[in-house]
Design a protein around this nucleic acid. Structure first.
Lengths: 160, 160
DNA sequence: TATTAATCAATAATGATTATAAATCAATAA
DNA sequence: TTATTGATTTATAATCATTATTGATTAATA
C-alpha cells in the first residue's frame, strides 16, 4: 500500500521511462501493485491470465524486464524461478525453504554504502539480504510431510 | 588458510560423511582449499582439468553437490552460473557486477537468528548477504569499455 | 489513409544443471 | 587370485526457466 506500489504511480513511471501503457502491461501492473507476495514470472502469468486470458508468457517476461530496467521492480534470482518484488525500500527477506513464501522484514542493512566506499573502496549499487529457514506456518507443519512449492531443492537446509 | 579450508580437513570431513575420497574428489578439494575465489562449476572444471585431464563435468557437479550436502561448501545461486564458497564463517559478499569477482567482508549479520526466532517466529537455517556494485579495479576501468565475465546482465546495476 | 515505430506473441534457441545408464573402480570375501 | 558388491565416474541425453527471433499487430501522427 506504499506509494511506490500504487498502480497509478507505476503506470506513470512506466510512461515516464518511455514505454507505452498497453492493456497487458496495465493488467500486470495492477496485479503487482495489489499483491503483497513475491511472485515468479510463471505466477504472474497464471494470475494475470485469469483477468486477461490472452496474455502470453513472453509478454510477461518482456514486461517484467521492462519494469526492472525502469527501476519499478527488483529481481531475486534463484536457481529455479526468479522472484520479483515491488518493495524497493531497504529490507531483509525471510525466505521459507519449505513453502517458498518470502516475508519482508524492515531492518537496517549491516553496513552503509558510504562506509563500503570509504573503507573498502567498493561502490554499492544494489544489495540482497536474505535469511533462509522455516516460516511459522511450516514449522508447525514440519511433522506432517506435506509438499509445496519450494524455492530450491532445500536438502541442505532441511537436513538439520 | 583457515582450518575449515584446509584440504586435509575437508578430506576427513568428506570421509566422515560416508563418501570415498577418490582422486577426482581429492583434486577438486585441493583446488577449492587453495583458491580464495568463489568459482563456478565450470571454473572448477576448467581449473582442475589442468592437473586432472580426464575429469568430467558431471563429476564436478556431483562432487560439488556432495560437498554442499556435507556442509563443506556453500552455494550462491545466480541466474547464469552458481558460485561456490569455502568460507563458511558469517560474512557479507561484495559482488562486482562488472567482473564477477566476489570479495568476502567480515561483518556482523544484521539480525541474530535468536531475535528472528523470538520476535518473528522465523527459524533461520541459512543466510545470504550480498552487496552488488563495482569493485575498486572496475571503478578504475569503467571508462575504458572492457568486458569480462559478468555475474549477470548487470544492466539494472550499471545504469545509474 | 498512409507511415512509422513500438509492441505482441508464437516459436525456437540458449545454456546451466540434472538424470540416466553403462563402464570402471575399490574393498572385501571366498 | 578371483568374484562380488556397491559406489563412482563418465558420456550423453533430458530438463526447463529464460532469452532471442521474427512476423503480425497496434497505436500515434500527419
Amino acid at each position: 500500500m506504499t506509494a511506490a506500489r500504487s498502480a497509478k504511480r507505476m503506470e506513470a513511471a512506466l510512461r515516464a521511462a518511455g514505454y507505452r501503457l498497453t492493456p497487458q502491461r496495465a493488467a500486470i501492473l495492477a496485479y503487482l501493485a495489489a499483491t503483497g507476495s513475491h511472485p515468479s514470472a510463471r505466477q504472474v502469468y497464471d494470475e494475470v491470465r485469469q483477468t486477461y486470458p490472452g496474455l502470453s508468457l513472453a509478454t510477461v517476461y518482456n514486461t517484467l524486464g521492462i519494469l526492472v530496467k525502469s527501476g519499478l521492480l527488483k529481481v531475486l534470482e534463484f536457481e529455479l524461478d526468479n522472484r520479483y518484488e515491488t518493495n524497493l525500500t531497504p529490507h531483509i527477506n525471510l525466505i521459507c525453504t519449505r513453502c517458498g513464501k518470502i516475508q519482508d522484514l524492515v531492518a537496517p542493512l549491516p553496513i552503509s554504502a558510504e562506509h563500503l566506499a570509504d573503507k573498502v573502496g567498493f561502490q554499492v549499487l544494489d544489495y540482497r539480504m536474505e535469511y533462509y529457514g522455516l516460516c511459522p506456518d511450516c514449522q508447525g507443519r514440519i511433522k506432517n510431510r506435506q509438499s509445496a512449492t519450494k524455492i530450491n531443492k532445500g536438502e541442505q537446509y532441511e537436513q538439520s
